[in-house]
Simulated assay, not measured.
Amino acid sequence: MRLLVVEDNIPLLESIVQLLSDEFEVDQASNGEDALFLAMQNIHDAIVLDVMIPEIDGFEVLQEIRKKGLKTPVLFLTARDSLEDRVKGLDNGGDDYLVKPFQAAELKARIRALLRRSGSLTTNQTIQYRGIELLGKERDIIANGDSIKLTSKQYELLEFMIQNKGAILTKEQIYDRVWGFDSDTTIAIVEVFMHHLRKKLEPFGYHADIKTIRGVGYMLNEE
């Protein structure tokens, strides 16, 4: 699970990132332009978004995200507590609205609720693709009743592909999602891991389900 946290108060931003990092991979931004750029990569399972941020405010960031057709769940986390602001945030496409100051346990619970509603939360759930099951809690993979041994990155790669089956994922999206923006590897690692993942799936007959879209990226067939 990968989150984007947007907050211009740097000490608070660092505190939120630290709080969430025990459950999620977390990217961060402290202004609207960076937030919009990161959100447009469409690699996050949810966004925690402040309203009063420099350059582009949170409401505008959300509007641009929704204009592009992105359905990433957005939780507003802001000091603006008026009814008008709450209504505006939700009417513009926000999914939840939490007012500062907040309790850490409530923030995490609301994020988990967003992820459950969107179908992204797999930490304690099983997701399926044909005869493959990803057991989120144990991070095990079962194919046609047999266990598949995958590395952590191979698991995350397969999970991302299943969550987006039928959609073309660019190499950049896959790289940013699985390895992160701060990784010291190169984008060529995507091809290497995709090759190894196909090899792991081949004995079970699923390797051909991962299609290479020449010059773009990859797509996992619809079930």
Rank of each mutant, 00 (worst) to 15 (best):
V5Q: 01
D8K: 03
E14F: 02
S15N: 13
I16N: 01
I16L: 01
L19E: 04
E23W: 00
F24V: 01
V26M: 00
D27A: 08
A29Y: 01
G32M: 04
A35G: 01
A35R: 05
M40A: 06
M40W: 08
N42C: 06
I43D: 02
I43F: 12
I47E: 00
L49E: 01
V51K: 00
E55F: 04
I56Y: 08
F59E: 11
F59Q: 11
E60A: 11
Q63R: 15
Q63A: 15
K67I: 15
K68R: 15
L70H: 14
V74A: 02
L75T: 10
F76K: 03
F76S: 07
A79P: 12
D81G: 10
E84K: 09
D85S: 09
D85I: 12
V87N: 05
G93E: 10
D96T: 12
Y97D: 06
L98C: 12
V99N: 05
E106Y: 05
K108H: 06
A109E: 06
I111D: 10
R112K: 12
A113Q: 00
A113D: 01
R116E: 07
R117I: 09
S118F: 04
G119M: 02
N124G: 07
N124H: 07
N124I: 04
N124R: 06
Q125E: 15
T126G: 05
T126N: 10
T126C: 07
I127W: 05
I127E: 02
R130A: 15
R130V: 12
G131E: 15
G131M: 14
I132W: 03
E133W: 04
L134Y: 01
L134Q: 00
L135S: 03
I142Q: 14
A143C: 15
K149H: 11
L150S: 05
T151G: 08
Q154I: 11
E156N: 02
L157R: 08
E159A: 09
G166L: 02
D176Q: 14
R177G: 04
R177A: 06
V178A: 02
W179Q: 11
D184H: 12
I189Q: 09
V192I: 06
V192Q: 03
F193T: 14
M194P: 11
H196M: 13
L197C: 07
L197Q: 07
K199W: 02
Y206Q: 14
D209W: 03
I210S: 08
K211W: 10
I213Y: 15
V216N: 09
G217Y: 15
Y218I: 04
Y218W: 13
M219G: 04
N221G: 08
